[in-house]
Simulated assay, not measured.
Amino acid sequence: MASAWARCSAARQLPLRLTVGAFFLNSGLAKLGADEATAEQLHQFAATTYPFLDKHDAEKFVRLLSAGELAIAAALLVPVVPAAVAGVALTAFSVGTIGLYLRTPGMREEGSLRPTEQGIVLAKDVWMLGIGISLIAEGRHGHR
C-alpha cells in the first residue's frame, strides 16, 4: 500500500513541482547573465528591505540569488528530492519575497494588504508559499 501512496503522491505533486521548478529554472538562468545595471537594481531593491544584504556587492548578490533559484529549481524538478525538502526550500524563498512585499513602501495600498500596481509583482508570490507548504505537508504525510 505504501508503494501505491508514493505513486499517487508523486502524481499529485508533478504539476506543482514542474511548473514552479520551470519558473525557478528560468529565473535563475536569466540572472546568471545579468548585466551590471540589472544587478545593481536587484541588489538595491533587496537591500532596502533587508539591510544586511548591503554588505555584498551587487554582482555577488545576483550570483547568489541565481544559485539559490537554480538550487530550488533542482529540488523541485529532480524526482528523488523528497517533497518536504523541496517544500522547505520553496517556502523559505517565498517568505523572503513576501517580506519584500510587506516591508517595501509602495507595494501595498495604504493601510491594506491589497497590492498596488507595483506590488502585484511580489504579491503574486504568495502562490509559492502555498505550494511550498503543501509539499511539506504531503511529504510529512507520506512518511507516516
Rank of each mutant, 00 (worst) to 15 (best):
M1H: 13
A2S: 15
S3K: 08
A4D: 14
A10P: 03
A11T: 12
A11R: 10
R12P: 02
R12K: 07
Q13E: 11
P15Q: 07
L16I: 12
R17F: 10
T19N: 04
G21K: 05
F23Y: 10
F24R: 01
N26W: 06
S27Q: 06
S27H: 05
L29S: 05
K31S: 01
L32T: 15
L32I: 15
A34I: 12
A34K: 11
E36D: 13
E36Q: 14
A37N: 13
T38V: 15
T38H: 14
A39N: 00
Q41E: 12
Q41F: 10
L42A: 07
H43R: 00
Q44I: 06
A47G: 00
A47P: 00
Y50T: 10
P51I: 07
F52M: 05
F52Y: 03
D54V: 10
K55W: 03
K55T: 09
A58P: 03
A58D: 04
A58R: 06
G68W: 02
E69L: 15
E69R: 13
A71N: 09
I72D: 04
I72S: 07
A73T: 09
A74Y: 14
A75S: 09
L76I: 06
V78W: 14
P79N: 06
P79W: 06
P79V: 12
V81C: 09
A86C: 03
A86N: 01
A86S: 05
A86K: 01
G87I: 15
V88G: 03
A92V: 11
A92E: 00
G96T: 04
T97P: 00
L100D: 01
L100P: 00
L102W: 00
T104S: 07
R108Q: 04
R108L: 04
E109N: 05
L113S: 00
P115Q: 01
P115C: 05
E117H: 10
E117I: 10
I120G: 05
L122N: 14
L122K: 08
A123M: 03
K124G: 05
K124L: 09
K124Q: 10
D125K: 07
D125T: 14
L129V: 05
G130R: 05
I131S: 03
I131A: 10
G132W: 08
S134Q: 04
L135Y: 08
A137G: 06
A137S: 12
E138F: 14
G142P: 07
G142M: 15
R144V: 13
